[in-house]
Design a protein around this nucleic acid. Structure first.
Lengths: 230, 230
DNA sequence: AATCGTATTATGGCCTACCAAATACTGTAG
DNA sequence: CTACAGTATTTGGTAGGCCATAATACGATT
């Protein structure tokens, strides 16, 4: 049997442990609102719902806790973390600093491939708004920023941004639906791309900051309009 | 019985679970070098060493994994994460962005209390260098930055910085011992304080960035001098 | 009827024991 | 000396149990 063939037919293992699958499921469930902020996450119930053992559930809860998606009340157990408006603003601020940094680096790199990739995501975002396909808007916004970070090899910063982003995910899906966001959002993002295209690091930095600041302002409005109602 | 008294005599419970104690122990052991990068962390060995069950050990390992201190090799198990020089540089870069941001905010706030607190930490750092007490240098450097972040209520950013910092902790203790660091480090930090004192946001930002950049450069030198030797 | 004390329940924290699968090691037969 | 089979190691995952605590419900007593 040839070594080459052996490699060729090598079966791609799922490679995902049950724990990781469960982790994704629960995170997904929190992010998309199946579990609401404040909901208790009872271990044994989760076992039943996920069809896994308590060991796995507990590891998943620990992991989500360190991600900030789950909070652990002493002597009461884990709940879905509540999103504090102050915290949300700080998260947006951090994203601004990091995305601005990445945008500047992209501009300084001056690679046409980056601009092309960003344009592609941006077009997809515009189409998403046109078709009212908010899921598409979210995933392509994500890939827009992923490009920004990973094309200049800032994987750690991308990881941080991702970590923080899941915590404000419900906010993201709300801000995105805002009336004017469908126009202004892509406009601001295209300013980032333009600055990168002309190699304007400082402009790219500011454009990225502006975009996040706008998102933050909308989020604040949404949150403070919502909180009193509870 | 008076309500005031009731609060006054409220018994302080340890409140720490076994898991948290174990987590701290293991993290500490990794950070201070008892476990070296690349070392395997065999669950059952840890159970024996910590005197706890596998349940606890596994949760601890998961937690450290999500902190980036532990890496999990598929089908082989957890090891202490190896520090890649590229990753270290990125971490320093992120710290620069966030600490710069915090320094700017402190300068804009213009509160004498902040300056006083920073000065106090800085003095302690200088004393630490004078007495060759590197542990003191580290903890006071930490409190310097903690002041920078928490006095302007940036707890999330402080959390991010902390999370990243533990990953480069061995580097920190090495860069700190570098010959000229004992002079230049405090000098750069005093520039941050000076800029804050005169309300110069931009200057504080740049000074904070410079300080981290210098640390990064030293770390790079140390690491690349060390890696080939292995 | 109001209050005080006592089961009961729900739940998390922690433990032991077990099995399956993958990997690493080891000794033996050819 | 090599190939191969068996053995130990170790993780991933499961099952189930014990204990402590907190909350709640339920009486019993005054």
């Amino acid at each position: 049997m040839s070594g080459v063939l052996k490699d060729a037919i090598r079966v791609e293992r799922p490679a995902k442990t049950l724990r990781e699958l469960a982790l994704d499921k629960v995170r997904e469930a929190i992010v998309n609102g199946y579990f609401r902020p404040g909901d208790r996450l009872v271990e044994r119930d989760l076992c039943a719902q996920l069809g896994v053992s308590r060991t796995v559930v507990r590891e998943v809860l620990r992991h989500l806790e360190s991600e900030g998606l789950v909070a652990n009340l002493p002597n009461k157990g884990p709940i879905v973390a509540l999103l504090d408006i102050e915290e949300a603003k700080q998260i947006y601020e951090i994203r601004g600093a990091l995305e601005g940094m990445a945008a500047r680096l992209c501009a300084e790199r001056g690679s046409p491939e980056i601009v092309a990739a960003l344009d592609e995501s941006l077009t997809a975002i515009r189409n998403g708004y046109r078709d009212s396909d908010m899921a598409a808007v979210l995933t392509n916004t994500s890939s827009f920023y992923q490009t920004l970070f990973t094309r200049v090899d800032r994987h750690v910063a991308w990881g941080v941004v991702n970590l923080l982003t899941v915590r404000i995910n419900h906010l993201r899906s709300m801000t995105i639906k805002t009336e004017r966001r469908g126009i202004e959002g892509p406009l601001q993002m295209s300013k980032i791309v333009d600055a990168i295209r002309r190699g304007d690091g400082e402009g790219a930095y500011r454009a990225a900051m502006d975009h996040v600041a706008a998102a933050s302002a909308i989020a604040e409005a949404v949150l403070s309009a919502q909180k009193p109602a509870e």
